[in-house]
Design a protein around this nucleic acid. Structure first.
Lengths: 236, 236
DNA sequence: GTCTATATCCTGATAGAC
DNA sequence: GTCTATCAGGATATAGAC
């Protein structure tokens, strides 16, 4: 691909993709109209459908361009760790296999793309289009990590583990997305700081402790009656 | 709602609010059109603007109806705990002051309203309308909890605490929202289980451990990732 | 007062001109 | 190949009938 073959068409495509990324971060899928995108990219409305076919396909292309390499790198690192020794991997290692590729790509892509925020937003966006895309595309990669976590945390029941990973995913996605409910609500977050590496280094001990916490004492996994006697209202 | 004194208008209002709650859970703010709402509620489009004035005002009314009592109850419980003893409250107590009113209202409102899911969705929705609403309306309540957490976790710097609360909020909101990225992606979540109380009892030890985890050593390399000696361009 | 009918703008998509 | 002009339907909001 010599500089001459970087045709006008390819540069148009690129401008559309970058505008889509940026606007998606701010407005989500439903809130980002094609007109907003084309206005920001300085291209015509029809160009989107010419290059990508539809809004759905455009967003799929935009996300796949960033997330495919991420998941490939994550699995490669997981493979590497698993090949290194026969003992089960630790939670630290698994978090590293999840975070390090993300950080590397974030550094690589920046400043064109706020990569980690894009990742978070994709995970919390309510649009069925994105949910379905993520579900279909990245299920195998995530399932491998789930199995690895199951080995790292054998004391947890499969159900308990599922929930813990869900909690972890929530803290991660919400934080990355900058879904700043608390920041807005209570000025909780210091103004300037937005250092991806620092953020993940703060997040890691929180998640590790949460994952390794003792399992809660539940009265019975198959509770038939939610006994109101032990209900929290009366106790103090 | 008394059966006879409920005028036609009031019942229309109520049907609109209930439809809005249900559809917002599924589609988010941007994805929930007034047409969708009026079709579900069996009322005319104009009725919404007559009763509420605008889409924004409708969603504000819908959320305030649920979240105002929640935050009032949370603050009342916090007051009660703080009045009981002069020692700083524990994290357990603070989580209880956050969770117990939510659970009580969830039980009360159900099955008309999936209260906790509504709460979570409101926190993760990308729409600026909702973000602004939550920020302006519930800032004082949340700030009080932040101060209380600062007393409960004196070993954490203010900045570290801010992040931990942010992480906690993420796990909470994401889980409550049923933002089922991982569920969809990896069938992580067991099918049937959706028991609010059980969910919060699983979440509590995770959050407690995370909040109380030792603070990361940010300038020391002793807590870097395992297995790999060389981290990619460690420049700080 | 309450809701029907309508107005006006915006959305995603396409057919066809350059 | 790329973009202009335009479509049919959906978006919110309002003017006016009962």
């Amino acid at each position: 691909m010599p500089p001459k073959s970087a045709t006008n068409a390819e540069r148009t495509r690129e401008r559309i993709l970058q505008a889509t990324e940026r606007l998606f971060l701010e407005h989500g899928f439903d809130g980002t109209s094609l007109r907003l995108i084309t206005a920001a990219a300085g291209v015509n409305l029809g160009a989107v459908n010419y290059h990508f076919g539809s809004k759905d396909a455009l967003f799929e292309a935009m996300l796949a361009r960033r997330l495919d390499p991420l998941h490939a790198a994550r699995l490669a690192l997981l493979d590497e760790y698993q090949a290194a020794g026969q003992a089960p991997l630790s939670c630290e290692q698994l978090l590293a296999a999840l975070f390090k590729p993300a950080l590397a790509l974030a550094r690589e892509a920046s400043p064109h793309c706020d990569f980690l925020r894009l990742l978070g937003r994709a995970y919390v966006d309510p649009s069925p289009v994105l949910r379905k895309l993520l579900a279909e595309r990245y299920a195998p990669a995530i399932a491998r990590f789930k199995d690895a976590f199951a080995e790292a945390l054998p004391q947890l029941s499969r159900q308990e583990l599922s929930w813990r990973l869900h909690f972890m995913m929530g803290a991660l996605a919400y934080t990355l997305a900058g879904a700043d409910a608390w920041r807005l609500i209570a000025a909780i977050q210091p103004e300037a700081e937005r250092d991806d590496e620092l953020l993940l280094r703060r997040l890691t001990p929180f998640l590790l402790a949460g994952l390794q916490a003792p399992a809660p004492l539940l009265d019975d996994e198959s509770r038939t009656t939610p006994h109101r006697a032990a209900s929290p209202e009366e106790s103090r």
